[in-house]
Nucleic acid binder design. Structure first.
Lengths: 97, 97
DNA sequence: TTATGATATTATATATTTATAAATTAATAA
DNA sequence: TTATTAATTTATAAATATATAATATCATAA
């Protein structure tokens, strides 16, 4: 039964989509509301090319999606499981007590 | 306020500890009960050297810990947040419906 | 049309991760 | 002691991820 290995591979790939400082900051922004690329760049300080690559990776993993309004692309989190994991990370790393 | 970046870096590092097929399989085994290295190798098919390296990385990220009984090392999950994330991954990738 | 704004793509250098083989340590039984 | 079992460490090659600069696309306003 190699099913478990295939699922582990999918899950690992999904986690790799999240496992980067810049992408977590992007998702942190998007967890509040959808944002366009320029707004994401301003909010995070990530360079344009790098932002585009990170967003592409997040799209590949079905973590985010986007809608177009004229020439502006608005990105948002498309996978509800991401919110769960962000919540766990918040508990683990962002809480004082 | 660069705090958020530092926390994103810590969180990303933690997620990187999880974001690997072999390590997820190891954690899947350990989520049930503690296991020694040989048992983990048998259960997963991961080679000895590779297992040792993966366990070392999991230790570095404080994801697992171990106890010694004579010359056998028993590993177990030491971070409760890991169970939460494993639960989310199970929902996302291992459920049929 | 043409210029501009918003974003993506390509190319490439660097860094990090992973896989594999060989050697080493540490504990214990003989 | 010595041999053996259980596991780690080291070295290194191959694969993947990241950062950066340059170029391209595409929609729209002038």
């Amino acid at each position: 039964m190699k099913e478990i290995k295939e699922k582990a591979e999918l899950a690992a790939s999904f986690l790799k989509g999240l496992a980067n400082k810049d992408r977590l900051m992007i998702l942190c922004e998007l967890s509040q509301e959808e944002k366009n690329v320029t707004a994401l760049i301003e909010a995070t300080g990530i360079t344009q090319t790098s932002m585009s690559q990170h967003l592409n990776k997040l799209k590949d993993e079905d973590i985010v999606t986007y809608r177009r309004d004229h020439r502006t692309l608005y990105y948002s989190i498309s996978n509800p499981h991401v919110f769960e994991i962000m919540g766990t990370l918040y508990e683990a790393f962002c809480k004082e007590d």
